[in-house]
Design a protein around this nucleic acid. Structure first.
Lengths: 129, 129
DNA sequence: TACAAATACCGATTGATGATCGGTTTTTAA
DNA sequence: TTAAAAACCGATCATCAATCGGTATTTGTA
């Protein structure tokens, strides 16, 4: 999935704001970077067509929201990215972890261990796909 | 960093093959996907200018190699990707780990713990930046 | 119900960037 | 010195995001 600059800004906006229609999004970006309402509208439409935003008509305007949690979206991006450089049969997620782990310091290793513990507690015995 | 389709193929090729000149790369892709030697040459050049390949003139041809290990390259990609959707002050690497971790199963959690252990053994007391 | 305002939708244009390849210049080995 | 090999240059095409004017719809309300 390849995203343009404005598309990224808008996505981040929705993870901060939850719900908004085109006019509200425009109001937010008008000051920061100019442009017209139409530009925002077509960007929202593009994100909607990419399944990154959902929308629901309320009154006469669509109310948009992020289709996925930020966390899940990033996880998906990382998996896709990693996939493109992963050998066949290589476990993509583990490859990503291996790649990242080389940059961790002590504190981060501690956090990671904690993360694993929590994960084991909250999702016991999940089936594999 | 945005890479085209052929650029990705070529990068992957170099992680498999280590060293090659344009002619050799062309020989490899000629069968699979056609195109001309020139196309390969300009792709190599683009990757070189992006610092993804190094080159050294030997005889009359440049010998190209991957500038980074696959692992480090992927780690960089993930960090860049994640950065674009990370709140200010949020730890990017940890954010990536958190994103990914939600998809791990038991076996992968085990592997990850092992990874941490090894990492602690091989890189004791690394300074932070 | 008709109408005005708000919004969505359509389509054209521009700008980046990757893919492709022909043609020319440069380099090098003999 | 020169012919062949390779590098380099530049043009064209395709795709996609950004932008925005203009038109068609929709809807709340008078």
């Amino acid at each position: 999935m390849n995203l343009g600059e404005l598309e990224k800004l808008v996505l981040n906006y929705f993870w901060q704001t939850a719900v908004a229609d085109a006019k509200q999004v425009y109001a937010h970006f008008e000051q920061t970077r100019g442009g017209t309402l139409n530009t925002i509208q077509s960007t929202l439409d593009r994100l909607y067509k990419k399944d990154l935003l959902t929308r629901e008509k309320i009154g006469h305007a669509f109310q948009y929201r992020a289709a996925k949690q930020r966390k899940d979206f990033i996880a998906g991006l990382i998996k896709d990215t990693t996939n493109e450089f992963t050998k066949p049969n290589e476990d993509t997620i583990m490859a990503a972890f291996v790649s990242l782990s080389s940059e961790l310091n002590e504190e981060q290793l501690d956090q990671l261990e904690q993360l694993i513990k929590n994960h084991r507690l909250t999702t016991p015995l999940v089936e594999e796909t």
